[in-house]
């Protein structure tokens, strides 16, 4: 296999702050491997998404094979293997939100951002051209009393209407 086929990326390593957090994490479990999910969360926060280099680094840190890390990353929907926008918009579309017209919110977001909905295997499809937003549908966000809801990065937005969505997007785009 020629070298061109094996894309060598920039290697990944935790920054100082994350390294400290990781050292704390690893103390919590009797086996290193158990720190897999929090470590991957930490790495994703730093790198933006889980690149092969991140997987390699995490595998080394936890004394497991890279395949094992890949195995975990592919199972959980919250880990991305492709670049995503600065703001990840998760729109809940499970029954309680569907009963409260989440479709209207979703269509409005689609039109407003001029993008499609990302699928798990194709995140680029739901990312805006400027790389600012990624729009995706997710299952129940456990806030059915204030449906319809969306989550943008770590924040939950409740009782949405198209007008509220406009306001939120305005504050984000500044």
């Amino acid at each position: 296999m020629s070298d061109e086929l094996i894309q060598i990326e920039t290697p990944f390593a935790f920054n100082e702050e994350n390294q400290r957090e990781f050292d704390e994490l690893i103390e919590r479990y009797p086996i290193k491997e158990a720190a897999m999910l929090p470590t991957l969360h930490l790495a994703q926060r730093q790198a933006g998404y889980i690149t092969p280099a991140v997987m390699k680094y995490v595998a080394e840190q936890l004394d497991v094979t890279v395949m094992k890390v890949k195995d975990v990353v592919t199972f959980y929907p919250m880990f991305f293997e492709e670049p995503v926008g600065e703001y990840v918009i998760r729109v809940c579309h499970t029954l309680p939100c569907a009963l409260r017209d989440c479709k209207v919110v979703l269509e409005h977001l689609k039109a407003k951002l001029d993008t499609d909905i990302a699928s798990e295997t194709n995140l680029a499809k739901g990312t805006t051209a400027d790389g600012k937003f990624t729009l995706m549908k997710v299952e129940c966000l456990a806030s059915c009393d204030v449906a319809p809801v969306i989550m943008i990065n770590d924040d939950l937005y409740k009782n949405l209407t198209p007008e509220k969505v406009d306001e939120i997007l305005e504050t984000l785009t500044g």
Binding site: T94, L95, P96, E139, C140, A142, S143, C144, D145
Partner: peptide, 11 residues
Amino acid sequence: DESEPGTFSNR
């Protein structure tokens, strides 16, 4: 890990 659709008390 409250994920059952329709449940939101633990939150």
